[in-house]
Design a protein around this nucleic acid. Sequence first.
DNA 1: GAAACGCTTCGGCGGCGGCCGAAACGTCGT
DNA 2: ACGACGTTTCGGCCGCCGCCGAAGCGTTTC
Lengths: 243, 243
Amino acid sequence: MSVRVGHRAGKDVSGRDFTAVGRALAAPVRSTVLNLLIDGSSRPAGELARAAGVRPSTASEHLAALVDAGFVVAEPRGRQRFFRLADARVADALETLGELCPPAPVVSLRQSREQARLARARLCYDHLAGRLGVAVTDAMVGRGWLGDGLVVTSAGRTGLVDRGVDVDAAGSGRRPLTRACPDWTERREHLAGALGAAVAGRFLAAGWVARRGSTRGLAVTEAGLVALADEWGVPADLLDVPC
Amino acid sequence: MSVRVGHRAGKDVSGRDFTAVGRALAAPVRSTVLNLLIDGSSRPAGELARAAGVRPSTASEHLAALVDAGFVVAEPRGRQRFFRLADARVADALETLGELCPPAPVVSLRQSREQARLARARLCYDHLAGRLGVAVTDAMVGRGWLGDGLVVTSAGRTGLVDRGVDVDAAGSGRRPLTRACPDWTERREHLAGALGAAVAGRFLAAGWVARRGSTRGLAVTEAGLVALADEWGVPADLLDVPC
DNA sequence: GAAACGCTTCGGCGGCGGCCGAAACGTCGT
DNA sequence: ACGACGTTTCGGCCGCCGCCGAAGCGTTTC
């Protein structure tokens, strides 16, 4: 018989227990679900089950596990339940973690028009992404608003407040003010974090961009093109050039 | 019979495959190991096995898995292998992920005190390590006893012999007289090799340090503090500053 | 009401993965 | 050359977890 002496001596000295979060990510179905929800969308269990290629019963168990782990939250809506990421920090963590697992599965070529639209402008969870996100970030860096590591300079703070972005409110929470979010359509990183969300919120509130349907895709309005050029220093043609 | 219709419909639309990274985090032993290494330290497999409370064979498997997942890298050093985090991004990801799992395992005060003691003074195989080892090595270098590559100078030979270290006996064997041993708690290297063992032996024989129990931890005695300051040029407070 | 629909819970089955001890391998010290 | 030591590899055992179909529950529709 084995000795099993181990568990007496072994015990975490400090730090975090990554076991639960690891288990939550360990199953292919759950990974697929998270990828589907990482854009901030909210989807019913059945759709997630179909997308992941499992029976509703199996998906239900996986979704329960994700809820239990704090990754997603469920919201009853009629006779179905919609699931979405629980928190912006979850999206942040998944993006950061994505850096460690470069193997990105292939993408279906079918919806190429939709792909192209998404590549132009979209929301990545709650901040601007696509060429729009990169262009806005680049402009902010070019003007000296963002320094090394995307830290906000004093000039950046002034410029952003002038354009209606509440930098103080964004920096008040526990969420990191700025983060570099790597993009899968662009080579470049773009602004994420609390400030990224605040900028995106300003763009939506001002009517510079509009959500297209229930997707995460964004349409840049006429007023948005003007504002981008005049206030943000982003020429309109930048959004059309595929870089 | 089951239908297995699933895998036709199921396919990742885009994004990352979190499965591998999740599996790597899913085991308690691996979580413990990562917590031990998250400070950038480099530790041999046996120590990690003991800390995690498993047999060396089991730890070896877990470490191989972590290496395979790209979380840690192994570095052969003598007859043991040292492991450390592979990359700064790994530490970043773990830190970000830690936000998601606030349940921080209990900190055993007992063990954290032991950690502090080990960081202060211990034996690394058979030579002095911890802050004591680094401080003694630094003092010897500062006095010109050890030159480039930690070779013993004539002044060093004299000084060591005067303090009861039998340099000749240490140099008589086939074992290298001096070696630089990288430390995991300190940034600096410290003296190892035959001379390192001889110095440690002198410290023990003179009662300047004493083994605490059967561990490799060392306690610096009152006489040791005096001798360190007077004979070796190591002020006592150097051992208490956490560098 | 009754039927349709969406989701969850419950057994049951199969496979993966963690744990150990024994043995092999390489290095270090005598 | 030999023994000691740290690490890895290899079977074998056991438990956990993911998958399914069937059944149960709540909501919507007729």
